[in-house]
Computed example of a mutant assay.
Amino acid sequence: MNRAARAGEFVKIARFETMSREDCIDEWRRTMGGQSLKYVSVQFMRSALAYEAQMKTHGGPSTAVRKALKAALKADQRTSEGGGRPRPALQSTLRPGTHLVREWNGRTYQIEVLDDGFQMDGKRYRSLSAIARKITGAHWSGPRFFGLG
Results as ranks from 00 to 15, higher is better:
residue 79 T to A: 09
residue 74 K to V: 00
residue 15 R to Y: 02
residue 65 V to F: 10
residue 82 G to E: 14
residue 42 V to R: 11
residue 19 M to N: 01
residue 61 P to N: 06
residue 16 F to Q: 00
residue 66 R to P: 01
residue 23 D to E: 15
residue 30 R to V: 07
residue 33 G to I: 13
residue 23 D to R: 13
residue 72 A to H: 06
residue 29 R to M: 11
residue 75 A to M: 12
residue 37 L to S: 06
residue 18 T to G: 12
residue 41 S to R: 05
residue 48 A to K: 12
residue 83 G to A: 09
residue 44 F to Q: 07
residue 22 E to L: 04
residue 73 L to D: 15
residue 63 T to P: 10
residue 59 G to Q: 06
residue 46 R to L: 01
residue 50 A to S: 04
residue 60 G to V: 08
residue 24 C to K: 03
residue 20 S to E: 03
residue 53 A to I: 02
residue 69 L to N: 13
residue 57 T to N: 05
residue 21 R to A: 13
residue 87 R to C: 07
residue 20 S to L: 02
residue 29 R to V: 12
residue 73 L to K: 10
residue 24 C to N: 07
residue 70 K to F: 11
residue 50 A to H: 02
residue 63 T to D: 15
residue 71 A to H: 04
residue 83 G to N: 11
residue 60 G to Q: 12
residue 54 Q to T: 11
residue 36 S to K: 00
residue 36 S to H: 03
residue 44 F to M: 09
residue 43 Q to D: 14
residue 71 A to C: 00
residue 47 S to D: 14
residue 42 V to H: 01
residue 22 E to N: 04
residue 87 R to A: 11
residue 40 V to C: 09
residue 33 G to W: 12
residue 59 G to W: 06
residue 56 K to V: 08
residue 90 L to E: 11
residue 55 M to P: 00
residue 80 S to C: 13
residue 90 L to N: 05
residue 77 Q to Y: 10
residue 32 M to Y: 05
residue 73 L to R: 10
residue 30 R to D: 09
residue 69 L to T: 14
residue 42 V to I: 13
residue 30 R to A: 09
residue 69 L to A: 15
residue 83 G to W: 07
residue 58 H to A: 08
residue 79 T to V: 08
residue 74 K to P: 00
residue 59 G to C: 07
residue 76 D to W: 08
residue 33 G to S: 11
residue 53 A to F: 04
residue 35 Q to K: 08
residue 87 R to I: 10
residue 16 F to Y: 05
residue 15 R to C: 03
residue 42 V to C: 04
residue 88 P to C: 06
residue 62 S to I: 12
residue 53 A to H: 09
residue 66 R to H: 04
residue 82 G to Y: 13
residue 28 W to S: 02
residue 39 Y to H: 04
residue 76 D to S: 09
residue 24 C to Y: 03
residue 85 R to G: 06
residue 50 A to E: 04
residue 15 R to W: 02
residue 40 V to G: 02
residue 69 L to V: 15
residue 27 E to N: 02
